[in-house]
Nucleic acid binder design. Structure first.
Lengths: 153, 153
DNA sequence: GTGGTTGCAAATATTTTGCATGGCT
DNA sequence: AGCCATGCAAAATATTTGCAACCAC
């Protein structure tokens, strides 16, 4: 954890930004809740526990900064809210998501899966791929099981 | 064109919705500008040419309705705006996009490309895939060529 | 008349910005 | 002093909702 914070600190410094207490508190929240997909508001509320004086605007500014530095990815699942997702260390690409249309759960997939597809896109469309976003919509294992249960009744 | 409009009309009727003049004008705009990725505001301005009395709220309501009926897909490229994209006729899945980070152009890919990946997801994660969203970010052919030009100078 | 539909205005929600203040070097 | 960063409030954007009026059957 501290190791990743240090890394982020270095990346900030490399661009002559500072790791202020507010920024540190924000990054810590993101590290602690890595599996979640927090909105700016979510982050704000969690950061307020650590640093009660912080303002929402600062959280937005910090998240924007972290997005620029590619420390987080800004994602959007179609509700009106942007969510922020920490990049895995050393990950070349953004990871994928499985969004369940029944229960709304979001599962992450770290495997790349798209290497072949990217090659096709580069070859056939002449498009130089830098990153991707892949989200599957469907029904998660748990909801499938629940639906089978219901059918029995 | 009329054929597709008819189809949409039937789908509306099947759910006891009507194809009002406002809805028709909206659908016509979407059909005419199929290659584009229009925001609600964009659609509104275009529809106003055909039906000047229409209100923005009606456009939003129509687009929401069409999304429900799976006539259009609501997408989001990360700017704060939702865009609406007509489903290709008979398309099982949403098509993919290539977003150029240099010039902002958006190219569409109709090929499926993901069949194998979906099988993996179903098998390894027990997730029943219904649809997907895939967007590649990178540099389009034209911008790549421009960048090569510049390097020569 | 009934029920879905519309336009307008107001309300909401999310994100951005202006500006005076504060902290660090 | 100079500069980046912050908090607050106001502004800007995007979208949704309440409601009276409207239209078609």
């Amino acid at each position: 954890m501290e190791h990743r914070l240090d890394r982020i600190k270095k990346e900030l410094h490399a661009q002559s930004y500072k790791l202020t207490p507010q920024r540190e508190a924000t990054v810590r929240v993101l590290l602690e809740r890595e599996e979640d997909h927090l909105s700016a508001e979510d982050v704000y509320l969690l950061v307020k526990d650590k640093a009660p004086e912080i303002g929402l605007a600062t959280v937005y500014r910090t998240l924007e900064l972290l997005t620029e530095l590619k420390v987080v990815d800004k994602i959007n699942f179609g509700d009106g809210v942007s969510r922020y997702d920490l990049r895995k260390e050393g990950a070349k690409h953004f990871h994928h998501h499985l969004v369940c249309t029944e229960c709304g759960s979001v599962e992450e997939i770290m495997d790349d899966l798209l290497e072949e597809v990217e090659e096709i896109v580069q070859k056939d469309w002449g498009f130089l791929v830098k990153d991707h976003r892949l989200t599957f919509h469907g029904i998660c294992r748990v909801c499938q099981e629940n639906m089978e249960e219901e059918e029995k009744n």
